[in-house]
Design a protein around this nucleic acid. Structure first.
Lengths: 185, 185
DNA sequence: GGTGGCATGTAAGCAGTTACATGATTTT
DNA sequence: AAAATCATGTAACTGCTTACATGCCACC
């Protein structure tokens, strides 16, 4: 999904500024779909405005710099829905953690321990984020609930697996680091 | 993970050609870590050779174009292990499927059905791939086993969840498509 | 008085993809 | 006869990140 599509997806859920879109895409619930930085979001929004997919209104704020709040138009909504009906790219899971796990026998046990703790913390954080979704605003809808529950279920499973089998992974590194001991036993 | 790192990771598991590296990275077990196309792999390998991280030997083949088989050097191995010890980027999951699920109420039920079937098929395929790993060659090692088992466990959970809750997702779209009927009942 | 959050935007650079170029063999 | 697989490589293009530019406020 391109930054353009990401903006449309987020704006179809409500008005937002470029700043907010970036936050949603890197930290918020839309991090499931794509990350994006300022350098790509602002130009994308400007282009979407020129194409009539979104409208912008400037909101001056006391003390803070003025915000440019974008709203999706009907044309934008149509394009977004249409894009969802077309065949999508397959889901992808990219895991630096699993690369470390794959090479467990070649790495110091401490590296494994750190990687495991880091991954667990990451899953915890994602779980915390997902649990907080309905609290933010009252307008929970069915699709959002389903997606959240799916995410929570997967993350809980992952977390339990890491807790149950993490020690085995560390043991691989320990055994490899002390082969003479293991052979002597 | 860059293409450079990907090549090192794959070659640390055994010799390979650029063609094979691309296959492993897009279809094989290394698709967990990064995708890459020819246009990025061949230049990366050439650079790695110039840096002394890999060596290449040409193998003429009867009938087929000659293969350029790359082997990792000790310097390459060291660099790879060192890179794994440094803090890694967090794991990411990008899901066009979940974007469709999130917007279930705005989409035709058929789109939901297709997306669900497609996702299930994808998980099935990944499961098939993971199950076949130990068959390919005898040298299964502990890290590879752990990683494979982790992948299989997660995929099985995902598949069961989709089978158990998929109907609920389709119902969201159906209810939204026929609101008068739902209200009348 | 410094760090960090809010807020928008541009320009340079890079990593990667796509498309092209080539060519034999095997499969349909 | 066409399409797919094996196999390498280059060139153009694109989309995104990083760094820069600017500025005010709140908190520590």
């Amino acid at each position: 999904m391109s930054v353009r599509g990401l903006c449309l997806a987020i704006l179809s859920g409500g008005d937002a500024t470029g700043y907010e879109i970036r936050k949603e895409s890197t930290e918020g619930r839309f991090s499931y779909f794509d990350d994006a930085s300022f350098g790509s979001i602002y130009p994308a929004l400007a282009r979407l405005e020129a194409e009539g997919m979104v409208t912008a209104r400037e909101e001056p704020q006391a003390g803070k710099p003025s915000r440019k709040v974008y709203s999706i138009t009907q044309a934008g909504r149509d394009e977004f829905i249409r894009s969802l009906c077309e065949p999508q790219a397959p889901d992808t899971f990219k895991s630096p953690f699993l690369l470390i796990a794959l090479n467990a026998a070649k790495l110091p046990p401490d590296v494994l321990r750190r990687a495991l703790e880091r991954r667990k913390a990451q899953v915890h954080e994602e779980l915390r984020l997902l649990s907080g979704i309905d609290n933010e605003n009252g307008c929970t809808h069915a699709g959002s609930d389903w997606t959240r529950d799916y995410g929570i279920a997967c993350m809980n499973f992952t977390l339990r697996y890491l807790e149950d089998h993490g020690e085995a992974l560390i043991k691989i590194a320990e055994d490899a680091a002390a082969p003479s001991q293991a052979a002597a036993e």
